[in-house]
Design a protein around this nucleic acid. Structure first.
Lengths: 207, 207
DNA sequence: TATTTAATGTGAAAATATTAACAATGTTCA
DNA sequence: TGAACATTGTTAATATTTTCACATTAAATA
């Protein structure tokens, strides 16, 4: 299972989200075309992704929801789980913590950080908020491996540096400031404006 | 300029973000490899994207920042601009409004909506919040073309239906509920958990 | 001014990603 | 039971995206 395409990883995560909903509803099996419709892709694509992760079924009643969830978990999750931290406890940071809380067993948001001393040392959205000055110490203490950056754009670069220095292995950057990190740190950047502008472009095209 | 690859559109939006920062700093020209480094891609890719939109320079001092911004604007923006609305004035909705506010001239967040009657008819993060029941009316009155959905997952489907019925042309879905819309509506979905899980996967791989 | 250097623009090749096509095989129902 | 059907798994074809390679040419330098 060594070389899965990046796109496939993204889709597996999305499939799992859907499968978990199915499971909660008591649906035990799902066809490739059902998954496909829910994700606006083709059934072949679903089958290929599932082939790539080595799961298969002899049944013609679709995939076993529970079994498929487990296989995807083996790809994405680690046995011990991973700790993440949200840096910046503003609206976006709080939204992420609230949204995420308890949704996945092998990924935890274990801490948040803020420069605002009012926020520091309080529990925000169910997760303790530490002062920014303790970042290095707490990241090590709590074994945090992933940093989610939601500070104002002008602070993003220094936060990223601190995270890297603290030994973090992955960064998810929600600020509008492009970052740059060493090779051994995985960086994913997301800008809402780009998503919105993509929608705007296609709305314009459809006219 | 009729058939630009989807990937290129996304990158153009990102280039513009960077170019606007350059402009603000007084930087008048930028090399393809500078843009490339900032976006973690190759210089060839930047040049090809720029070629595709028909901009070129005879100078060997890089692209004219201002001119390039204008060309990208011609691709992405419409002359009149587009109005968007945020549906759901919780943490995420407020974060988006605050983050977005005034960043682009041709895209405006013109309204927000919430079921909570406490929030309705107040100004939240600088944008007026209307009661959910007025959605159809206000979307038409304010000529809103794009809906950004940030309600709890269980309300997403009905909100999307209402938006479509109100004549919206594009939807940006931030809930974890997969939506389904008619052909003539452009839908973009984003799930933070997927981004986080992608980071987790690659962190796991790097070990 | 002549030479070297460094940048862009782009056709063609390579790499990735998606889709088509279909064999194999459970499942359903007459 | 057996024919018709529906679904998976997978190879091959197609489409898309990225990269290579290099011609061209402005800028810098000797």
């Amino acid at each position: 299972m060594n070389k899965l395409p990046e796109k496939t990883i993204g889709r597996l995560s999305e499939y799992r989200r859907t499968l978990l909903i199915c499971l909660a509803k008591g649906k035990t099996h799902i066809f490739s075309h059902e998954l496909a419709n829910l994700h606006h892709i083709t059934a072949v694509q679903v089958r290929r992704d599932i082939m790539l992760i080595g799961y298969s079924t002899t049944l013609k009643k679709g995939y076993d929801v529970k079994a498929l969830i487990d296989v995807i978990a083996q790809i994405i999750d680690t046995d011990e789980g991973l700790n993440a931290a949200v840096i910046g406890a503003g609206n976006l940071g709080r939204a992420i913590i609230t949204y995420f809380n308890g949704k996945r067993t092998k990924l935890r948001i274990a801490a948040s950080f803020d420069v605002d001393t009012e926020k520091a040392n309080r529990v925000i959205a169910g997760v303790k908020c530490y002062p920014m000055t303790d970042l290095n110490k707490i990241v090590k203490e709590l074994n945090i491996r992933i940093g989610i950056i939601t500070v104002p754009p002008e602070d993003a670069v220094s936060v990223a540096e601190n995270l890297v220095n603290s030994g973090i292995k992955g960064i998810l950057n929600y600020t509008s400031t492009p970052l740059s990190v060493p090779q051994n740190v995985y960086l994913e950047e997301y800008d809402m404006i780009t998503s919105l502008e993509k929608v705007a472009y296609f709305v314009k095209q459809k006219k």
